Amino acid sequence: MDVQHEQLAHYFLQGDDQGAIEFIKTMLEKYPRAYLYGDIITPAMYYVGELWERNEISVADEHLATAICDFVLSKLDAESGHVSRKQQKNFKAMLFGVEEEQHYIGLKMVADTFKEHGWRVRYLGPALPMEHSFTQIEKYRPDVIGISAALPYRLKTIKMVLEHFAELDWNPLIMIGGRLAKEYNLKEFESDQVMVVKDLGDLKRWFNEGREETINETS
């Protein structure tokens, strides 16, 4: 694997937000945003996690890296050339981490990807209590509900929310993502209404194949 992600991880761990931004802007001159997210930023954060698991960095170091990554993603989003409000499609997405799930960096990149394709997006962040997610979904009535989890003991929560979502009268597409989707076999959850998104490449292929256009046919 290319060492670019390790270079970026170094900026994150040093708390060097300006260095990270400059590095990423240099990468954007060479690569599309999808590549940056899927092949540089995501591996950088996985690398940080691996260092923590090997006790080579502290919890504080990991939190600092996450905070810097969050800041950089927010700045990229603010400076990006997303479509104007008048050009936005009618499709709506709502994205959040399931109850007690604290990981959210991947969700922010997913939110940006939807915006890049002209979707209206509500990003509700990590660890959203179940009852509040249900309330927001009923109000917003999104075409896609994206839920994220990193750890296997979130499976019980995922099953519970999927059971509730199955009862929604407009049949939104449910996307399950996060590290859990990448590292575990979630085939049992897949259906016409539920899609497992292992990484940003899966999401990009979904858009490239024009599958978003089939949503209105099933909702």
Rank of each mutant, 00 (worst) to 15 (best):
Q7D: 02
Y11H: 15
Q14M: 07
D16R: 11
D16Y: 08
A20R: 15
K25W: 01
M27T: 00
L28C: 13
E29P: 10
Y31V: 02
R33D: 02
Y35W: 12
G38S: 12
G38R: 08
I41N: 05
T42C: 09
P43F: 10
M45G: 05
Y46K: 08
Y46L: 12
E50Y: 01
L51K: 09
W52D: 07
W52Y: 07
E53A: 05
N55F: 03
E56V: 08
S58G: 10
V59L: 11
V59D: 06
D61R: 02
D61N: 08
H63M: 13
H63K: 04
L64Q: 10
L64A: 06
L64M: 10
A65C: 09
A65V: 00
A67L: 08
C69L: 12
S74I: 01
K75F: 15
K75W: 15
D77G: 00
E79N: 06
S80E: 10
S80H: 12
K86Q: 14
K86R: 15
Q88T: 00
Q88N: 06
Q88F: 06
K89D: 13
K92Q: 06
A93N: 05
V98T: 08
V98N: 00
E100V: 01
Q102H: 14
V110P: 11
A111N: 14
F114G: 11
K115R: 12
K115P: 00
K115W: 05
G118I: 00
W119N: 07
R122E: 13
R122C: 11
G125M: 11
G125W: 11
G125K: 10
A127H: 03
P129I: 03
P129C: 04
M130T: 11
H132R: 14
H132C: 15
S133A: 15
T135Y: 07
I137A: 14
I137D: 11
I145M: 05
I145N: 03
L155Y: 04
K156D: 14
T157I: 14
T157F: 13
I158E: 08
I158F: 05
K159Q: 11
K159G: 15
M160F: 15
V161N: 04
E163D: 13
H164G: 14
A166D: 10
I176G: 07
G177R: 05
G178T: 02
R179H: 15
R179A: 05
L180H: 03
A181P: 15
K182H: 07
K182V: 01
E183T: 00
Y184Q: 08
L186E: 14
D192V: 04
V194M: 01
M195N: 03
M195S: 07
V197A: 02
K198S: 04
D199W: 09
G201T: 10
G201V: 09
G201D: 04
D202A: 13
R205W: 01
R205C: 07
N208P: 09
I215M: 11
I215F: 11
E217Q: 06
S219K: 06
